[in-house]
């Protein structure tokens, strides 16, 4: 049953990807991107990664779709026709895809309990989390307590992203305003 669900979701996912490549209208591309994120979130939930699925649904399908739409508001809604032949990009994409598929051959089987990640630190966390922190959700105790440094770094990354966007977009706007003042 799970195999069937995954198969259907992956088929939908590839259909959406093909549609994104084919469609020239950027509004449709943004909406299809939202659909892609929702399918991805469902797939992640089917793989029991509920935390990641929630983030994907809220960020990928929700906030970033709105951000792309508001960016689209500032530009044209149709993709400009390609100036160069697209044989080389297609060949490069297919080659990269093949290399990635080749890479998955070396991955351990999904859900295998004998892999290093399940026998080495992972087992240690599962064993020690509840006696040491009494937090039932091991994901949270690893994220916020055992790996608190990493999460602090992630928060700092988001902070930096926000500051970066602010400096790029707000700074330029102020300069344009000044130019207008100079002219008048």
């Amino acid at each position: 049953m799970e195999f069937l669900i995954n198969l259907v979701l992956l088929l939908f996912l590839s259909a959406v990807t093909v549609a994104i490549i084919g469609v020239r209208n950027l509004f449709a591309v943004v909406v299809l991107g939202g659909a892609y994120s929702f399918l991805m979130a469902t797939l992640l939930i089917a793989m029991d990664a509920v935390d990641v699925g929630m983030t994907e649904a809220a960020v990928g399908a929700g906030v970033s779709t709105v951000l792309l739409l508001s960016a689209l508001h500032l530009t044209k809604t149709d993709e400009a026709p390609a100036r160069h032949s697209n044989v080389l990009p297609i060949a490069l994409s297919v080659l990269t895809g093949l290399v990635l598929v080749y890479g998955t051959w070396d991955l351990p089987r999904y859900g295998d309990s004998d892999t290093p990640m399940n026998t080495h630190v992972g087992a240690e966390y599962l064993e020690r989390s509840i006696p040491e922190t009494t937090v039932p959700n091991v994901v949270t105790s690893v994220l916020a307590s055992y790996r608190g440094y990493d999460t602090l770094g992630e928060t700092a990354v988001i902070f930096t992203a926000g500051i970066g966007v602010l400096m790029l977009l707000k700074g330029r706007r102020r300069r344009e305003d000044e130019k207008e003042e100079d002219r008048s």
């Binding site: 960020v59 906030v63 951000l67 508001s70 960016a71 992203a161 966007v165 977009l169 707000k170």
Partner: peptide, 9 residues
């Protein structure tokens, strides 16, 4: 941060 990026865009 999310809201601020949305505001700026």
């Amino acid at each position: 941060t999310m809201l601020l990026i949305f505001y700026t865009f």
